[in-house]
């Protein structure tokens, strides 16, 4: 990973470039920009925390990176494609290579936990046998084997968060964007989630994890992207970020 300052940081394995943001700014409607002059490169196999005070723009940056919103200026290049130039169908293909853990879960209330997790696989055209195998294994590994048929309303907040994580990683995405993925999860399961993210990272997935948790930064040391009032400031080592 490198920022606009051109600095290389820990965790950069210099794999293929996954995502580049060039001079990106973003605003909602006619309000002031919530993100300004973002220059960022994310390579395959990297792991970064995204930290910053509330309102710094973490969620907005993740939304930009997941192609959920368009920048008001600047350029985003994802998997080598300028996203402003790609066709609609191509945009779908690019999005299928990204896993997103939403802070507000965004689970479909009328579907079971199993079907929520199966969603990206079905969209990708996987066959039902494969889906059944992947989803069952994933949910069982996260300790939700008994809750596969439960609807989101029947799950605890922590369980919902785990389902959201399972949905994001079940396709083994090239880029995983997680917005506070451990905030509602009990400590024992946090360990398991971080192990899961770490394994994906080892397999080549680029992980960007937005968090407020100093505990995470201290226990699992990865480089930190620090956002402050919409600007990305130079990366800091995880230990120092936790201390700050």
């Amino acid at each position: 990973m490198s920022t606009g300052s051109g600095m290389a940081v820990d965790g950069d394995r210099s794999g293929a470039t996954i995502l580049q943001l060039h001079g990106v700014g973003m605003r909602y409607g006619s309000a002031d920009e919530v993100l300004r002059d973002i220059d960022l490169t994310i390579n395959a196999g990297t792991f970064h925390y995204l930290v910053g005070p509330s309102g710094a723009g973490k969620t907005s940056l993740l939304r930009l990176m997941s192609l959920s919103v368009a920048p008001s200026r600047g350029r985003i290049v994802l998997f080598g494609r300028d996203v402003a130039m790609v066709e609609r169908d191509e945009l779908g293909r690019l999005r299928r290579r990204i896993g997103v853990v939403f802070q507000d879960f965004r689970l479909l209330e009328h579907l079971s936990a199993f079907d929520n997790v199966a969603l990206p696989l079905r969209i990708g055209g996987a066959d039902e046998e494969q889906i059944s195998s992947y989803v069952s294994q994933m949910l069982a590994w996260l300790g939700l084997a008994e809750r596969m048929e439960a609807k989101p309303a029947e799950l605890s907040m922590g369980q919902r968060q785990l389902v959201t994580v399972a949905r994001a990683v079940v396709t083994r995405p090239a880029l995983l964007l997680a917005d506070e993925p451990t905030s509602n999860v009990e400590p024992a399961r946090v360990e398991r989630l971080m192990f899961l993210f770490g394994e994906l990272h080892k397999l080549g997935t680029a992980v960007v994890l937005a968090t407020h948790s100093r505990e995470l930064l201290r226990r699992w040391a990865f480089p930190v992207l620090h956002l402050d009032r919409g600007r990305l400031i130079r990366p800091v080592p995880a230990g120092r970020a936790a201390a700050e």
């Binding site: 609609r88 779908g92 999005r95 299928r96 997103v100 969209i123």
Partner: peptide
């Protein structure tokens, strides 16, 4: 909102 989610998960218009 649900349509938006499906599209974020990579669903093409035809899906």
């Amino acid at each position: 909102e649900t349509v938006d989610l499906l599209r974020l998960l990579g669903a093409p218009d035809r899906y």
